[in-house]
């Protein structure tokens, strides 16, 4: 394997996402301000219900993490579908690097760009709604956050492979995986509230465990976590490896099927 070539491919695919996204200032405006509107609405909803203040913090962290989930759905999972529609997919297929490096580049660029949105959402949310957080274990918090992202984007790589042959169904599938996942992964409330075993099932989506662990680390004893933080971190590590390996095999299989059935260049399905 030509490692240098693949690293260049990773960099080349990450570049337009990480840098291109910063070149249009108005996008930054939308990326930072828009998520706050929805988050503010949920905060006011909790206030109308008379919820404890810690729920405001839950909503802000959960709302910020929606940026990553949306990025995984729309800029990872459906990406090969978009590339097919715009005629880029066949170029990827003809190029000599591993397709996994294209996916890795997409993930890396997506993480960087989305982090701008997520971090600014958290900072603005904390300032506007005066949320108190207690970061007593910053190292562990960073480890949980980074592992969550790797696992999440690993899942995105797997989705991307599986979606490769789809037509408009890909669009609808991603649409379908927004609100239901917000619900079962506990984006706006502690996931344990939906029931222990149900929440455990939802842990297949890495953000479920990541979000729960981060809330435990940020809001302390007030958060009734699903599992101990270290257990959640270990599970996240396992799922990160599992998703990336699965993405590798799925990509090979789907590419083979696509070439065999002539579906890699089909547009407007």
């Amino acid at each position: 394997m030509d490692w240098l070539l693949n690293l260049r491919a990773v960099k080349g695919r990450a570049y337009p996402r990480a840098v291109g996204g910063l070149r249009e200032p108005s996008w930054m405006f939308f990326d930072t301000l828009l998520p706050l509107l929805g988050i503010a609405a949920f905060v006011f909803y909790y206030q109308a219900l008379g919820a404890p203040e810690v729920y405001t913090g839950y909503v802000i962290i959960g709302g910020a993490m929606t940026a990553y989930w949306l990025n995984v759905l729309w800029s990872m999972a459906t990406q090969f579908y978009w590339e097919k529609e715009t005629g880029n997919l066949e170029l990827y297929m003809m190029a000599p690097m591993s397709k996994m490096s294209v996916l890795a580049g997409m993930a890396l660029g997506g993480m960087i760009l989305t982090s701008v949105r997520a971090v600014s959402t958290i900072v603005l949310g904390v300032i506007i709604f005066q949320v108190e957080m207690d970061i007593s274990s910053p190292g562990l918090l960073a480890a949980v956050f980074i592992t969550t992202l790797i696992a999440l984007y690993g899942l995105g790589m797997l989705f991307s492979s599986l979606y490769m042959l789809w037509g408009r169904g890909a669009w609808h599938m991603s649409n379908l995986m927004q609100e239901p996942i917000y619900l079962v992964s506990g984006f706006y409330f502690p996931v344990r509230e939906i029931g222990f075993y149900f929440a455990l099932g939802a842990a297949i989506i890495p953000i479920t465990l990541g979000l729960d662990a981060m809330r435990q680390l940020l809001f302390g004893n007030e958060t009734q976590g699903l599992l101990p933080v270290t257990t959640e971190l270990a599970l996240l590590l396992v799922s990160a490896v599992a998703f990336i390996v699965a993405a590798h095999f799925a990509l090979k299989k789907m590419e083979y099927l696509g070439r065999k059935e002539g579906r890699l260049t089909m547009r407007w399905q």
């Binding site: 949920f42 219900l49 649409n175 927004q178 609100e179 619900l183 409330f189 939906i194």
Partner: peptide, 18 residues
Amino acid sequence: VKPVFGTFILVFMFVIIL
């Protein structure tokens, strides 16, 4: 599914608090 689950999120939030 999408709009209905959006509603369920609000229902859950309501039930969790009240």
